[in-house]
Amino acid sequence: MATKSDTSLSSRLSPFQRFYLIVIAGFILGPFIPLLIQSFAFRWAWPDLLPGTWWLEQRGKSMMPLAWDYVLSPYSRVWEATVNTVAIGLIVTVICLAICLPAARVLAREKFRGKSAFEFFLSLPLIVPEAAIGIALLMMFIRLGLAGSYVGIIVAHLIPTIPYMVRMLTAVYQGLGRDFEEQAMILGASRWQVLRLVTLPMLLPGVVAGALFTFLVSTNIFLLTFFLGQGQIVTLPTLLFSKIAGGTLDASAAGITLIVTLPGIILLIISERFIKEEAFGKGFGN
């Protein structure tokens, strides 16, 4: 018994865990290897494990790898989709911040009747199926003339992003306490000065984390963009959807998949510095 409990306490990996970590790495990263190969293949017939003809052998026909030549050309609409995705993400993030900052302040500091019901209402968008919201919103937006417009998509993206943003900002405000603001007030600072010189600088790390997460959620949204964009506005997820909707993946689709993955990798590297795992300790839902 004693030796058993020793192993259970050890801060090292058990053999099973070591094996499991390798399996998980293969599960997560493995599929990207054939994806990369596919994007440089010229001909890749079953059952070859590697392409029968690489682009390199056919470079007389094309200077660029064929798939990448298409992906980087205007015909693929990749550039347009990237610009759309980033622009929509940025605007959504800014609006979401503006809406959630004051609300988070009240939620973190004030007590009022119905507060827990209100908090539950704020997290409802996370647990109401997206298809239900998307189709109902589309009906509404068609009536309002917002379907297929940037405004409609940006407004719709607020729904799934607000719950995360308000949660992360409330946690930041709770950590901040109100002593510093009160001291500044006592020393004669105006409300605006307090906001600019005390509150915002202290909030900044949390605000950056919330903004990054909101941007991430917005850039990953498929369903709302697809339903409400009416095919007129392409973002990276909807562009890729239209490429693979037939259930096959050719070399150019592989290239586009890699391009769609790229912003996520960049965000991952940036956000690892700002978003600490501990921030999620309180959970999302209840």
Binding site: P31, F32, L35, L216, T219, N220, F222, L236, P237, T238, L240, F241, K243, I244, L249, A253, A254, T257, V260, T261, G264, I265, L267, L268, S271
Partner: peptide
């Protein structure tokens, strides 16, 4: 960090 559609493409 990446959209579901990437996962579908990989599948």
């Amino acid at each position: 960090m990446i959209p579901y559609t990437v996962g579908i493409a990989l599948a």
